[in-house]
Write a protein that binds this DNA or RNA. Structure first.
Lengths: 165, 165
DNA sequence: AGCATTTGTTAGTTACGCCTAACAATGTTA
DNA sequence: TAACATTGTTAGGCGTAACTAACAAATGCT
């Protein structure tokens, strides 16, 4: 992998752990090693060692054989990761019309590497598209029409690509 | 990092090397270890060891102290990576209005992790937006207007988000 | 309470991908 | 062509992050 020019404070892996813990704390009540292991499809020893690192960074609280809590700092980070994830996932499903599962997978990977600006612009873009349908039929629907029957909408004033049937 | 459910044939790092070699072969005439090293901001020994791996996989031809060639297979892969890169880079610059450098960085990272479907949909989306301006002012310009003065275009029929000044 | 199952930990291994230091080949030029 | 600079390689090390095997604690059941 190419060396990041600005050292990331947390690796994608660590972010996945934080995210998983936060999500479990939402769904169930407590996060346990076994749960995290299942959610991330990783064996338990991997979780134990990740938790040790996150503890050292004061992002989680975890004592042996106990359950896992996020510190204030860890929770803040987790919330941000989830925010990124949700934005990307919405973009893929709502704008690009990709089915949930693939959208989730892509979001899961991209959330760790996209720049803050890239993310903000995607959020703004969703906002914009939803706020501004531009005609009776909104952009996602029009785009879907382009994907599906493969035709441009009639009220489309564009030149170029007209010949593509 | 989360274990990929389907084992990727090449790692992001290997893809970066293939991409760099193909790009050098375009720009200059021959790809040398030093050039690859510079382009990827990695020391030369890292390049040597990467080339060994790529040679084993029959993706590059490289004999000691010689320059580097792509095999037919390697070239095919490289071309696909570059295709992904270009699509993403266009999306970030032309649709999301992100400056070249950040767009390139994001493209560089995302190209390795996005799903084939995600990529195709982004390509289609660019196509669609360019083919279908929807009004005198095309979508990117309208979006930019939303970003810049922070206002929705006048001809926007949307509800919601109206109150955001 | 006692034993079994589940859950979690430690220890040790592997692979990747970068690094530095040292050495070797190549190329340049006096 | 001999000396020097550049380029490339090997060897060895480090951090991350996964894994298995073996052991230990906690839980659950009778």
């Amino acid at each position: 992998m190419v060396k990041p020019q600005v050292e990331r404070q947390n690796t994608p892996s660590m972010e996945d752990y934080l995210e998983a813990i936060a999500m479990l704390r939402g769904e169930d009540k407590v996060a346990r090693v076994s749960q995290i292991s299942q959610k991330l499809k990783v064996k338990m020893p991997s979780v134990t060692s990740a938790l040790r690192k996150l503890s050292e960074k004061e992002l989680v609280l975890h004592q042996k054989y106990g359950y896992v809590e996020l510190t204030t700092e860890g929770d803040k980070m987790a919330k941000d990761i989830i925010r990124r994830h949700k934005a990307l996932s919405r973009f893929f499903t709502e704008i690009l019309d990709i089915e949930r599962e693939t959208a989730e997978e892509d979001a899961c990977k991209i959330e760790h590497v996209i720049s803050p600006l890239g993310l903000e612009r995607i959020i703004k873009f969703i906002e914009f598209v939803e706020a501004c349908p531009q005609g009776e039929v909104n952009l996602p629907k029009r785009y879907k029409h382009y994907l599906e029957p493969g035709e441009l909408p009639e009220d489309c004033l564009g030149k170029g690509l007209r010949e593509r049937k």
